[in-house]
Design a protein around this nucleic acid. Structure first.
Lengths: 193, 193
DNA sequence: AGGGCATGTGAACGCCGTCAACATCAATGC
DNA sequence: GCATTGATGTTGACGGCGTTCACATGCCCT
């Protein structure tokens, strides 16, 4: 039975539908009314679950952030081990995963790091997932004395910035896809010894 | 005589008004109708000069890009000379100027590098201004053998990416303002010898 | 002087987000 | 078992939006 909301899961259904719409058309170009119609529900029904359209988009953004975090977690899982090579692979893989997420889901990426989600801080605790993974990888390299001497200072911010910037510039068409791999290589050459 | 459009400069006036609106409220949250009203003109008048709202925003974006380029040009002019120190100052100054532009004009920055302006490519020739200045500064450092050996490969993309990424993350509130200076320092430590 | 063309107007269309009043249904307490 | 209550969904409306089309206006060129 499709008409199961009403003490059902309208909120989740709307997030799901909105997520699909954002992925396809971008956060701008998504209309509350269209989402409601797709769910055979009146437009105003949304307001029982979300303060406004932006609140729904923030919920979508949290899904997107979780997806990014999962990609990065998978990379860590795919390169276990205590060796220098494994540490290097984890570091490079995290960067590649971040960029791959942006390339695969540009509209989601834009929403997650755009003004709507940033303003409503989904908690520094949310994006702490990805960021903590990066810091962890860098600490590991540092502990293994694999970093150029004196490089650790500010390196987390630099690496995050470079990765984020390249990802943004790629999805806006200012740089070709290959720039992603080029960045990871370049970053490795600069920071690793 | 203020009411001088009609074979006047409505197009320029609209860009100017739109520029002000974007700077204050962001490219989303800017309405064609409001701009027209501010200029005492009917909403449909815009369509004699711009294909649609996005075309107007692209024109605004070009102004923004020109402003960025001018900031960077000013930095180069402020640090003339043939010395290593001057070359270093130009390199660091360009990065700082890029970030300062984003911090001072976040809404303009978002528009310039956002989907609207990227899609309508204002010509790789447009943003070539800032990019060429960066490449020039790096070439100069390279000619002076001030770069870490082997670092030049892909460094322009890395530096652009890092600068752009940090700027984005700062204006969305994910990083504090000081991260800008920290990045420039960190980048210098990594790439310069 | 007059025709043509660029420019601006007015009214309308179909969207949009949002709200307030109302309907409906599930669960709870008697 | 039934009424009350609170959560949930509907209806209809409001004002604003981008855009279009038929029409007015006024400058420039011949």
């Amino acid at each position: 039975m499709a008409r199961a909301y009403h003490h059902g899961a309208l909120a989740e259904a709307m997030v799901e539908e909105a997520l699909a719409a954002v992925r396809e058309h971008g956060a701008d170009h998504v209309s509350l009314r269209a989402i409601a119609q797709a769910l055979d529900v009146s437009p105003s029904a949304a307001y029982n679950h979300f303060a406004d359209k932006d609140a729904l988009l923030v919920a979508v953004g949290q899904c997107g952030l979780a997806a990014l975090d999962e990609r990065m977690a998978r990379v860590l899982a795919a390169h276990p081990g205590d060796s220098d090579d494994a540490a290097r692979a984890r570091f490079a893989g995290l960067g590649r995963a971040y960029i791959a997420f942006a390339v695969d889901e540009p509209n989601l990426f834009r929403l997650v790091f755009g003004p709507i989600c940033a303003e409503a801080d989904m908690g520094p605790e949310s994006w702490t997932g990805p960021y903590a993974k990066l810091v962890g990888a860098l600490d590991e390299l540092n502990d293994r004395e694999m970093l150029v001497v004196g490089a650790r200072d500010g390196l987390d911010v630099t690496v995050w910035g470079a990765t984020h910037g390249i990802a943004s510039l790629i999805i806006e068409g200012y740089l070709p896809r290959e720039a992603g791999d080029a960045l990871v290589d370049s970053m490795g050459r600069l920071a690793l010894r």
